[in-house]
């Protein structure tokens, strides 16, 4: 029989308590009424926020594919960044004033965790640092009252799978070592081909049937909680539906690595809509004891990053 105080609540388990994939284009924030799909995405952010809060996170870890870095990975560490943001493409949709609550202490722990796994990383804490549109949109819609402190990490333009997986593992190290309950928010589109001309938002659609079919296949996997299976498909997804702006489609590698590299999740697709031709989806993953078993994976597992091997990219 335990002699502990029966009124004392059991401390919640640390770890990655919830995961979210959200698009970073500004329409759901700035002009949800311009198209039915934008409104559904806006509403999906709200539904996702409710689920996220139900898992009682004490940290939002945001990985934004719209924040590129070159010197390793950068981590936002300004405790209260404040600015009026304007998107470089959709500037006519309006300005986005923001003030966020960043967990400066965890940002430094995260940098140390990346360093311990052989990665180059640094914190950035400068007034006026240009936080990317995707991070701004995600935090404004998912955490409008800053009730949960956040940390944002960049995406290195040259990093491929090994480096990205190790970044995800390092983030997991920091979450567990800090005893944190983290919700991981990955900002990025599925297919990323925009229409290259202006469109009526009411007529927005996925750029091509092929993009749409692949997006739906990804969402079928994620809806079943098959995150690692999706991550294993990343190279093929990149070949099939990604405009090659960076070396590879790496958001799923990061997401799976930080969430534990398995398929044991309850997946929920809150919405899937077009954003100027790209595939925008709001998807939630809650860890569970069951789910789809691990498949026979093709990709190697990597624990430590051993640096740039001078492979041209």
């Amino acid at each position: 029989m335990s002699d502990s105080d029966p009124t004392e609540l059991e401390a919640p388990e640390p770890g990655t308590v919830y995961g979210l994939l959200v698009p970073g284009l500004p329409q759901p924030l700035l002009c949800p009424g311009a198209g039915a799909g934008y409104q559904r995405l806006h509403d999906a952010f709200a539904a996702a926020r409710r689920q996220l809060l139900a898992h009682e996170p004490d940290l939002l870890l945001v990985y934004s594919t719209m924040w590129p870095s070159i010197i390793g990975h950068q981590i936002q560490a300004d405790p209260q960044p404040e600015w009026v943001h304007v998107d470089e493409l959709f500037h006519d949709l309006g300005s986005i004033p923001y003030r966020f609550r960043i967990d400066e202490g965890f940002a430094h722990q995260l940098r140390d965790a990346l360093d311990a796994r052989g990665l180059t990383a640094r914190t950035v804490a400068y007034h006026g640092f240009p936080i990317d549109t995707g991070s701004v949109v995600a935090l404004k819609l998912l955490n409008p009252d800053n009730s949960v402190p956040a940390v944002i990490i960049s995406s290195n333009v040259y990093s491929d799978r090994a480096e990205t997986v190790v970044v995800g593992k390092a983030c997991r190290d920091a979450i567990l070592a800090g005893g944190r309950r983290a919700a991981v928010v990955v900002v990025g589109t599925l297919s990323n081909r925009l229409f290259t001309d202006w469109i009526d938002p009411a007529d927005d659609r996925i750029h091509s049937l092929k993009d749409d079919e692949w997006n739906r296949k990804i969402l079928e996997f994620l809806g079943q909680g098959r995150l690692e299976d999706t991550a294993q498909l990343s190279r093929e997804i990149h070949r099939q539906i990604r405009v090659p702006k960076v070396v590879n489609f790496k958001s799923m590698w990061f997401w799976s690595a930080v969430m534990g590299q398995h398929n044991q999740f309850d997946g929920e697709v809150f919405a899937y809509e077009a954003l100027h031709g790209t595939g925008g989806a709001v998807v939630g993953l809650a860890p569970c004891g069951s789910g789809v078993g691990d498949k026979e994976f093709d990709e190697d597992d990597v624990e430590q990053f051993h640096g740039d091997r001078d492979v041209l990219a």
Binding site: P68, S69, G128, P130, D132
Partner: peptide
Amino acid sequence: HSLSVDPIFPNLFR
């Protein structure tokens, strides 16, 4: 008129 902070090299350009 504003402040430009380099997103890649913020340590060098503000």
